[in-house]
Design a protein around this nucleic acid. Sequence first.
DNA 1: ATACGGCTTAGACTATACTCTAAGTCAACA
DNA 2: TGTTGACTTAGAGTATAGTCTAAGCCGTAT
Lengths: 151, 151
Amino acid sequence: MGYTVSEVAEMSGISAHTLRYYDKQGLLPFVDRNKVGNRDFKDSDFEWLGVITCLKKSGMPVKKIRQYIEWSMEGDATLNERLEVFENHKKVVIEKIAEMQNYLDKIDYKIWFYQTAIESGTAAIHAQNNCVFTEGMDLSTVPNLHFPEQQ
Amino acid sequence: MGYTVSEVAEMSGISAHTLRYYDKQGLLPFVDRNKVGNRDFKDSDFEWLGVITCLKKSGMPVKKIRQYIEWSMEGDATLNERLEVFENHKKVVIEKIAEMQNYLDKIDYKIWFYQTAIESGTAAIHAQNNCVFTEGMDLSTVPNLHFPEQQ
DNA sequence: ATACGGCTTAGACTATACTCTAAGTCAACA
DNA sequence: TGTTGACTTAGAGTATAGTCTAAGCCGTAT
């Protein structure tokens, strides 16, 4: 008396194909089956799908999520392992956000670059600008970097 | 008298394999060749690599980056197109950061969840908690959601 | 009775982005 | 004059995450 795979697909926004794929990958061991063998999702399964979606969309690979789900199925004995999963993943997500913020700054620079270039009609007005996109590279042997557009 | 592909790999952190792959995908049309036919990177090419890395790591697919590079090669006639590329991509990145922030909040909830469960020795202490992971799903027909761990 | 629709599975296919291999070229050193 | 080592290419292989197809099962409506 639960939900079929297509009902869950409709409600969750995860396609029925993907739900079956997740199941095959071991992400949905908690989903019941009815007497015919069809998946029979319970209300509480939506919360699991929410957790899986959170981990998935924040960059955790399916394999790692499966490991977390397996631990969850083992009950209170794996509480520490599961805490560690989220603590580690938190660091990853924080790092990702910081990285994105950094890229956002560079994108803003480029927007300014093109806006001012469009105003003056040419990118040549930026001939004297310093570089902002080589961060993280070891360019100690590069004497003079210029913006590509100036070539 | 520039840099070889492996020198650039060393300095940029992008593998030589990947640099050749990017070239094959049309991302590096500005890279010169010497008389033998070997790639001969210039100082200014590092700035291009920085832009490509920025777009790539912030989620832009290779195909879109190639389009941007093609426009860049066409000079001032495509300044508007290139501005639009960055303006659109900025929206995408901002949305991505907001999404990550949202997931971070949920991850923090889970960390609290497991920390308090560990303290008390069982996840059963959270039997009364409301759901936080089903955001975005149409659960209007679901009467009562519970945390999966309670099952 | 039989046809329809939705479910099941295994497994093939796609997309994206690398990553590597094989065969060949070339400059330099012994 | 080899031989080495770094370069080249086309194209094969890998990893990840779906996405789809084909064949078959089952309950219900006609």
